[in-house]
Simulated assay, not measured.
Amino acid sequence: MSRMKTYDGPVSDHFDGLTFFDPDGVPPKSLREVLRWQFGGGRQRATWPVWAPSPHADTPPARVDGDKVRLSFVGHASWLIQAGGLNILVDPVWSERVSPVSFAGPKRHNDPGIAYESLPKIDVVLVSHGHYDHLDIATLSRLAKDFAPRVVTPLGNDVTMRSTDSAIKAEAFDWHDCVELGGGIAVHLVPTRHWTARGILDRNKALWASFVLETPAGKIYVVCDSGYGDGRHFRRVAERHGKLRLAILPIGAYEPRWFMRDQHMNPEDAVKALADCGAEAALGHHHGTFQLTDEAIDAPAKALVEALDAAEISQQRFVAMKPGQVVEI
């Protein structure tokens, strides 16, 4: 029996009293399937360069006011979004590794697109789920010490944060909750096709989500991690939230497909997701910083170009980002 602290709350259509589940998804792969992927015959894991620096680096302004939104890509699934006088970090990871231990596990292949020391005062942090490449306790603790931001996260992840560092000001919410952040900014937590865990005994003991940010420049759909399935999660966001100015969509960590299909989109899936959610434009992330799966470091960006051409969608509508790149809308 695990003594790990986990979420305790009422049963719902996606929580059975012990674990969370996606009524329109599939369970995560079993340990047997993990071992088959890692150690089975015929695995073809691309070799990444030891260091692959981005040609970009950003020093953001203190604030962005008016009807503009400034988005700076930090790397992997980490973003700084500035709007309405607020500075919002999404899934912030400044650590060298995304792992339960500091001496092993996936390691950075490039620096964060914003040096930590160049960050403006952070008001809000959004954390999508508990996987180590998204919920980085070391970074959250550093942010808590330096800025004491609100941390908005799906149910149960607050338990993970506070059980490690009580200074992290975590607030937990359910799917479809709306949180007012101030400055005319609000965030909606929306279902996404994924799962979560921090170890082998807490699988799906916390919830996972994507975000729809209401900003002065329009709605921004932030998908930190998701499989595609039949696309219904993306179509439902369009139905529920209407016109989207921008979608941030994952395009990496997708090989081998037999293992990753249900939890991570490939670029072809991401192009379908863009069509389903109907956003005016998209930015591709979740690639090129940490090697979590088997594809080459540049494979997602190349495959995105091919998928857009095949779908007859302009290359300018969906761009694969590099750390340090900035987009203003």
Score class of each variant (00 low, 15 high):
Arg3Gln: 14
Met4Phe: 06
Met4Thr: 11
Asp8Gly: 03
Pro10Val: 07
Asp13Ala: 11
Phe15Ile: 04
Leu18Met: 11
Leu18Gly: 14
Thr19Glu: 06
Phe20Pro: 09
Phe21Cys: 02
Asp22Gln: 06
Pro28Ile: 09
Leu31Pro: 09
Arg32Leu: 14
Gly41His: 12
Arg43Phe: 02
Arg43Thr: 09
Gln44His: 14
Trp48Ala: 05
Ser54Phe: 05
Ser54Val: 06
Pro55Val: 06
His56Val: 03
Pro60His: 07
Pro61Phe: 10
Pro61Arg: 13
Val64Cys: 00
Val64Gln: 00
Gly66Thr: 01
Asp67Leu: 00
Lys68Asn: 13
Arg70Pro: 00
Val74Arg: 01
Ile81Glu: 00
Ile81Met: 15
Asn87Leu: 07
Leu89Trp: 05
Val93Met: 11
Val93Asp: 14
Glu96Ile: 03
Ala104Trp: 15
Pro106Ala: 15
His109Phe: 04
Asp111Glu: 15
Gly113Ser: 09
Glu117His: 10
Glu117Gly: 12
Leu119Phe: 10
Leu119Gln: 09
Ile122Phe: 11
Val124Gln: 12
Val127Cys: 15
Ser128Gly: 13
Ser128Trp: 08
Leu140Ala: 02
Ser141Tyr: 04
Ala144Gly: 04
Lys145Val: 09
Asp146Ile: 01
Phe147Cys: 15
Phe147Gly: 00
Pro149Glu: 07
Val152Asp: 02
Val159Pro: 07
Val159Tyr: 03
Thr160Lys: 01
Ser163Met: 03
Ala167Arg: 14
Ile168Arg: 04
Ile168His: 05
Lys169Ile: 07
Ala170Gln: 06
Ala170Lys: 05
Trp175Val: 03
Trp175Ala: 05
Trp175Asp: 09
Gly182Glu: 05
Val187Tyr: 02
His188Pro: 00
Pro191Glu: 02
Pro191Cys: 05
Thr192Lys: 01
Arg193Trp: 01
Trp195Glu: 02
Ala197Ile: 00
Gly199Lys: 12
Gly199Gln: 15
Ile200Glu: 10
Leu201Thr: 13
Leu201His: 09
Asp202Ser: 05
Asn204Lys: 05
Asn204Phe: 01
Leu207Val: 05
Lys219Thr: 02
Val223Glu: 01
Cys224Thr: 15
Gly227Ser: 08
Tyr228Phe: 15
Gly231Met: 06
Gly231Leu: 09
Arg232Met: 12
His233Gly: 07
His241Met: 14
Lys243Glu: 14
Leu246Trp: 11
Ala247Met: 09
Gly252Asn: 09
Tyr254Ser: 13
Arg257Phe: 02
Trp258Met: 04
Met260Asn: 13
Met260Thr: 12
Arg261Cys: 02
Arg261Gly: 01
Gln263Tyr: 11
Pro267Arg: 05
Pro267Cys: 10
Val271Tyr: 06
Lys272Asn: 15
Asp276Gly: 10
Glu280Lys: 10
Ala281Gln: 14
Leu283Cys: 07
Gly284Met: 01
His286Leu: 08
His287Glu: 08
Gln291Asp: 06
Gln291Asn: 09
Ile297Leu: 15
Ala301Thr: 06
Ala303Lys: 15
Leu308Met: 07
Asp309Glu: 13
Ile313Glu: 05
Ile313Ala: 03
Arg317Pro: 00
Phe318Trp: 09
Pro323Met: 10
Gly324Arg: 04
Glu328Asn: 07
